[in-house]
């Protein structure tokens, strides 16, 4: 049921049954390493190209999710998936082997919430019983598409972020009293917002207004207050973007510094890992949510969170043509009780 201007209330409260995550070596060196299910030390995963490696990582993660949930691929109705590469090849090639109906999505780094929101909406509407939402990103495949070759000796801007090599997958099922898991209660789809930032090395600043718009619209639509949530988790605003978001709420008279978390800030240790403003990419929120936040909710350390993944909808081409960076954010509310 649609409520307010942009939010869907999932009146049948689908459940988030299980998640799985997989990350690369740099993420395993970071502070969240104990929360990830799978990891690889080899950025190639034994493949010949980084694109194939990313695909393989996504496939392994989905297979791990199925085994954790005690299911096989014939029991899955649909899979919503996306990544950063042109024509979403990581997802398409990975799902080719899985034999599950596939809905490919692109929302840049906002794709995780986009796919989770759509999966939850599908289950809520009874279009399917077991639906997977998953996204991936790989540092090396993203670098070569968006930036310079890896071996090129150059300096990064202090506002730049590092694409996470990681993937996360979540399984959404219909509400049933026999299943003890989390509820997905609301989803809010964001508008495309552009404040004229043109610097591709400062995505946090470009994406902050989108995150702000989606969070405030979500609160307005659901008539909830900020302190309703134990945490408001953004995807990859990074250190600067997070600071700008906290500041923006401050200007409106709200202090969110104690409940705001950002997956891009959490995943790396800035001082030790030289990651400038933090992590980014589709795999950033996917792996951090599926690994860390799912665990926090399961163990009741948190009970209600709003996850907001943020995406910058530019391409290297549009940047070369002098365009600014339009951004988007989608939000999903996940709660222990309804």
């Amino acid at each position: 049921m649609k409520i307010g201007s942009q939010t869907i209330q999932l009146e049948n409260t689908p459940k988030l049954l299980q998640t799985a995550s997989m990350v690369g070596p740099k993420e395993m060196d970071g502070p969240l390493n104990q929360f990830f299910d799978l990891h690889t030390d080899d950025v190639f995963l034994g493949e010949k190209s980084f694109e194939k490696a990313e695909s393989k990582m996504l496939e392994q993660c989905v297979n791990h999710l199925l085994s954790k949930a005690g299911m096989n691929n014939s029991m899955i109705d649909y899979i919503f998936a996306g990544d950063l590469l042109n024509q979403c090849i990581s997802s398409g090639y990975a799902i080719r082997n899985l034999n599950i109906p596939f809905i490919g999505l692109y929302g840049a780094c906002s794709t995780f919430c986009e796919s989770l929101a759509l999966a939850a909406s599908f289950v809520n509407a009874n279009y399917g019983k077991n639906i997977i939402a998953t996204t991936s990103s790989h540092f090396c495949s993203a670098e070569r598409q968006f930036r310079m070759p890896l071996e090129h000796g150059n300096q990064q801007s202090p506002t730049s972020q590092c694409t996470v090599t990681g993937t996360g997958a979540a399984l959404v099922v219909p509400n049933s009293s026999s299943i003890h898991s989390l509820y997905i209660t609301h989803v809010t789809f964001g508008k495309v917002i552009d404040f004229g930032i043109k610097d591709m090395t400062n995505m946090g600043a470009a994406m902050m207004p989108a995150a702000y718009s989606t969070i405030t619209t979500h609160l307005q639509d659901t008539k909830r207050k900020l302190d309703y949530y134990d945490a408001i988790v953004t995807g990859d605003l990074g250190i600067l973007g997070s600071e700008l978001l906290v500041d923006q709420f401050q200007k409106e008279g709200y202090d969110i510094s104690h409940i705001h978390k950002d997956c891009g800030v959490l995943i790396y240790d800035k001082e030790k890992q030289d990651t400038h403003c933090g992590g980014s990419g589709c795999g950033c929120m996917a792996s951090v949510f599926s690994g860390y936040f799912f665990e926090q909710l399961k163990s009741k350390k948190m009970n209600k969170i709003l996850i907001v993944s943020t995406g910058a909808l530019m391409s290297p081409l549009s940047i070369q043509q002098g365009e600014s960076i339009p951004s988007i954010a989608h939000a999903v509310a996940i709660e222990n009780e309804v």
């Binding site: 300096q155 801007s157 202090p158 506002t159 930032i197 400062n202 600043a205 600067l240 600071e243 700008l244 500041d247």
Partner: peptide
């Protein structure tokens, strides 16, 4: 944003 961002050393 420019005012908030850290400059290159």
């Amino acid at each position: 944003v420019e005012k908030k961002a850290t400059n290159s050393p």
